[in-house]
Design a protein around this nucleic acid. Sequence first.
DNA 1: TAGATTGTTAATCGATTAACAATC
DNA 2: TAGATTGTTAATCGATTAACAATC
Lengths: 216, 216
Amino acid sequence: MAKIKFMRNKILPEKTVERLSEYRRTLLNCLAQGKTHIYSHELAGLHNITAVQVRRDIMFIGYSSSQRKGYDVNELIMVIGSILDSDEGLNVAVIGIGNLGRAVTHYFMGKRSKLNIVASFDIDPDKAGREFVGVKCYSIDDFNDMVKSHNILIALLTVPADAAVDTVAKLIDGGIEGILNFTTVPLNVPDHVYLEEYDMITSLEKIAYFVKAKKG
Amino acid sequence: MAKIKFMRNKILPEKTVERLSEYRRTLLNCLAQGKTHIYSHELAGLHNITAVQVRRDIMFIGYSSSQRKGYDVNELIMVIGSILDSDEGLNVAVIGIGNLGRAVTHYFMGKRSKLNIVASFDIDPDKAGREFVGVKCYSIDDFNDMVKSHNILIALLTVPADAAVDTVAKLIDGGIEGILNFTTVPLNVPDHVYLEEYDMITSLEKIAYFVKAKKG
DNA sequence: TAGATTGTTAATCGATTAACAATC
DNA sequence: TAGATTGTTAATCGATTAACAATC
């Protein structure tokens, strides 16, 4: 039987958290293919990183394989789940149900996950009450009530750029704790809110720069 | 007049490149509001970073303000442009024109940029020849020819997860040099290809983890 | 056992921040 | 000038990698 040291209360490095999320998806695929054990160098190879990094990440979460036959895929999935997931699942709202909002909702609905999109919100009164991609849309004015009644913790911000700043003020006011910002607008949030930028334009401009740089 | 040291041939740190892209957007807004000069601490405040970091980034690109009255907004935009943009613009293709592909295309078309979406590609023969969001769709079989004739350098990968690996092989074969990966599948690419992950699920799971961690 | 693999410490690398002289 | 601001070096922090003893 594998050992799990309970160092769960320690906060993990950001990059490790990212990779754990990625490992888990890969491990679920392995499981689907009937693979029950996986070596650190195998998992590393699938992610284009080094085996040391995989082992160090796994060390951080306090898991260790019992044999030298690699990690038990099933166990590792469970342990990562115990780190990343909340027992009760986590409720998420999409803010702004235009083209991007709908595509993102659709994208998420396709994945199994402890993260549930429970509502969308829009400023357009015509949209309130309707359902988009299987998710009910509410007026942004109902946001505060909904956050409380539906225990919404995280918001996906997919509003147009010029609405971003005002909308974020509403999200903060409503008591949201995490925001994934799809807009290209830099946002100011208080310390207790976790903000993650998700900026296509910057990602693309970065690729463009390094493609140029590589060419000489 | 401002001085520009020509250290353009040096490769910039990844994070600096990201921030330059973000600064530029902010600077364009400043310009639109009639602001001609900006202090490092102002630009920093708008991005929730320190003024030292702004100054260091600007030092890296070899620009320096002539007065102690902050940076000339217009000049700084030009200098960042000379770093990030290619003179001729850069041609981009969307691979997989489903929900996500269309939303992403729509999103980009709204921004002015030196990055042009010149084509989309799909495996579905019914889509080839049609136009989506103002961009013509081609069969993925025509990819190699199109890359050459339209000088496509970068691909946005918005295909379903199970098609990701095969599709990337085609992109590489066609001679693509940069990929923005919207799928959740980890990809293996040769050294000369610049790959950037753009993974919503991981971003969300990361937010979920740190929201939990902050609470106790 | 010998070889492969893991878990962990120490060394390195890269990015951020602190400190401060130079400038207007 | 005095105060504010910049440009840059040195120190710190965080993340990756190298090295290696321990284990099966």
